[in-house]
Design a protein around this nucleic acid. Sequence first.
DNA 1: TTATTAGTTTCCATAATTGGAAAGTATAGC
DNA 2: GCTATACTTTCCAATTATGGAAACTAATAA
Lengths: 117, 117
Amino acid sequence: METNKRLDLIFSALADSRRRAMLEQLSEGKKSVGELAELFDLTLGAISKHVSLLENADIIYKTKQGRTVYCHMNFDIWQEVSAYISMQASFWHNRLNELEAFVLSKKSTINEKRKSP
Amino acid sequence: METNKRLDLIFSALADSRRRAMLEQLSEGKKSVGELAELFDLTLGAISKHVSLLENADIIYKTKQGRTVYCHMNFDIWQEVSAYISMQASFWHNRLNELEAFVLSKKSTINEKRKSP
DNA sequence: TTATTAGTTTCCATAATTGGAAAGTATAGC
DNA sequence: GCTATACTTTCCAATTATGGAAACTAATAA
């Protein structure tokens, strides 16, 4: 698919705080459509549509186990979004230094998490 | 304003390829509303609405010189978006290494640009 | 002052999003 | 087979987004 169309889908999928909240849930591990419906006080039908939208934007993917459908984060997608942001970023002053610092600080946080539990 | 609401505005503003193209234009320097209207084959009214939407999301700001309204990129906004992406990113494997490499490679490209012209 | 130019805003029509209700599909269990 | 479960899809209503046309505001020019 064309990059612009893909970015349209990704950004409009991210433009809803409920969907972003779903992604935060999925970042911590797979969840079934039904589990998401319980967490977000919406009918199964409504959740199913949000999930399809996220799947369509390639932000998540589904697997099926029996009649249960699990939603998984597609971690690769952030690379695409990051690439767009970084591309935009390439035009400014020295903001990338700040982004770099942020990334490095995050990385050390993660490494600490990896050691401790 | 609340972060979630801000992110809603930012992402939905970015969810339109024409608006992203406008931002690419503005990344290279300020442009008047009229100049944007010529570039994007839309009426001045329509462009004015897109511009207001981007301004509302704090992605751009306007300055006035006589009756001409110039649109400027608000570079700070990318930091906010990057923060969100990086936050999400903090959950994955070692994707940050890739992002870091990307940022570093971009930085060297920019430095080269700065030296040469 | 009057006319022109640069934008903004309002009005209107059309299209896309969103959500519930209910019908439809597929799997599990009896 | 029949029934229950876990979704998905369709239908419909309500809301929101988008764009042109035209009215409106503000600044420049004659």
